[in-house]
Amino acid sequence: MSITQQYLLDAYRAGQHGEPAPPAPGTHDARVVRQWRDERRFRAVLAGRPVGGRLRRALGRGPRPTR
């Protein structure tokens, strides 16, 4: 059963019982990603590591010259 089919079944059952429908799949994805990122930054601060920018610094250096 796909996630969409499960959602539709849950929504139907909730409607039959007079309960509110569950949130649609993917509704809270952005919030979850944001919380995960904030947690990683918080743990980095506690560990004494730089919070971020490693990828940006690496890309800012540009390609290395070939020998």
Rank of each mutant, 00 (worst) to 15 (best):
F42A: 08
D10L: 14
V32L: 06
G62E: 07
R57D: 00
R37Y: 01
R41H: 11
D10T: 02
I3L: 09
A58W: 06
R67Y: 11
V33K: 14
P22N: 05
F42Y: 13
S2A: 11
R40N: 09
R56N: 02
A11Q: 06
T27P: 00
D38N: 11
G62K: 12
P25G: 06
S2H: 13
A47M: 11
M1V: 12
L55Y: 05
D38Q: 14
Y7S: 08
Y12R: 15
F42T: 04
Y12Q: 15
R31Q: 13
P63C: 03
A14T: 08
Q6A: 15
G53M: 03
G48H: 07
G26Y: 03
H17T: 07
R41N: 07
L59T: 10
L8C: 07
A14Y: 02
Y12V: 10
H28W: 04
A21F: 03
V51R: 08
A21G: 07
L9F: 06
L8Y: 05
G18W: 05
G26M: 07
G52M: 03
Q5K: 13
R54M: 04
P20G: 11
H17G: 00
P25Q: 10
P25T: 07
Q16K: 15
H28M: 08
Q35S: 04
G26E: 07
E39F: 04
G48W: 09
G26W: 06
Y7I: 12
V45S: 08
L9M: 12
G26D: 06
A14W: 02
R13W: 05
R49S: 04
R49V: 02
T66L: 15
P23K: 12
G15L: 11
R41I: 06
R64K: 13
R31H: 03
